[in-house]
Write a protein that binds this DNA or RNA. Structure first.
Lengths: 185, 185
DNA sequence: GTCTATATAGGGATAGAC
DNA sequence: GTCTATCCCTATATAGAC
């Protein structure tokens, strides 16, 4: 355990994330990022030599690790129905604010899309594939399982949009409830 | 018909919109907006005295008029099932690119959210209310109709996110197909 | 590893000629 | 109604002291 820095790498990522979520890549200024981390702009460059791009990359990587932990890893369990159940619950832990926001979505505009669009696309593909495989394992035809998987992820993303618009978390919770019903009966 | 300007107000709005859609409010620079309209930055200020805020406001207003025409007006028809059918078809006309993008969604970050968040929220509320009223008129209990309406708009927004990520329009078309089935059987 | 100070570019916005 | 030229400010990034 390094005892040198005031904030650990993880803690810094946790401070950077809300800025990118609320302002997007182009709207996230170094002044905002410096305030959030309680560092000077120059100090930020010590930790993130390539500047804002590095900061966003680390923020995205940290959220990627949380997605892995809460949403994707559960989909590798032995029992498909339990796996889906756990993964859907994990979605609520992954998107966990009063008004939950998807960092990947916030980074899909302007320079953010140019820099991270490909990585985000691949992440979403992995999620959709793992979910569809589990749905198929419950006895649903593969083609149909793929459709349900895709619709589920779309519903989650859509609910997050409405959460952002109405500044609430109810749409996401309702969405997960519906997903449970639709997939698991 | 004024024959003075090279581009009409509507034509200018049509040029500004893609910039705000792809870059968001903060990412849409005056240089990009000037290029898109084939005007100098100074000329833009003649048409939009308050600058970028005015440009985004006009872009949003123009898309609002299209939403009214394609999606909302049909919901005032006499036959609720036909109204829903026409409105869902209208959604495909409203979001009409190779990779359809929602301007309101692109403006829900950073300064865009500060400036237009309230107006966007009200627009979505109107849409949800009109849709739910029509669903209720088909004989579905009001509470349930509200849920279906909300879920439909969420599904549309979610499908647009996936269209943006995968650079396609298929998710939106599939979404509208499913909405037809879900609501109209 | 942190900071102040600074360099350089680009952003939004305006003046004023045509 | 359009433009060039300009202004001021902020944004990103770097230099170099501590």
């Amino acid at each position: 355990m390094p005892r040198t820095a005031q904030l650990s790498k993880t803690e810094r990522a946790q401070r950077l994330i809300p800025i990118f979520q609320h302002y997007g890549y182009d709207g996230a200024t170094l002044n905002k990022l410096a305030s959030a981390t309680e560092l000077s702009k120059a100090s930020l460059y010590h930790h993130y030599p390539k500047g804002k791009e590095d900061m966003a990359r680390h923020a995205l990587a940290y959220m990627g690790s949380l997605l892995q932990k809460h949403v994707l890893a559960p989909l590798s369990g032995p029992d498909p129905e339990q796996a889906i159940q756990n993964s859907l619950s994990g979605v609520l832990n992954y998107y966990n604010g009063d008004t939950p926001i998807c960092l990947m979505n916030s980074l899909m505009l302007g320079n953010g899309k140019t820099l991270f669009g490909k990585a985000i696309r691949e992440t979403v593909k992995v999620w959709a594939k793992l979910l569809s495989q589990n749905i198929a394992k419950t006895g649903i035809p593969v083609i149909e399982a793929q459709e349900i998987s895709s619709q589920t992820i779309e519903a989650i993303q859509g609910s997050l949009i409405l959460c952002r618009i109405h500044e609430t978390d109810t749409h996401l919770h309702d969405c997960i409830q519906n997903a449970r019903k639709n997939i698991l009966g």
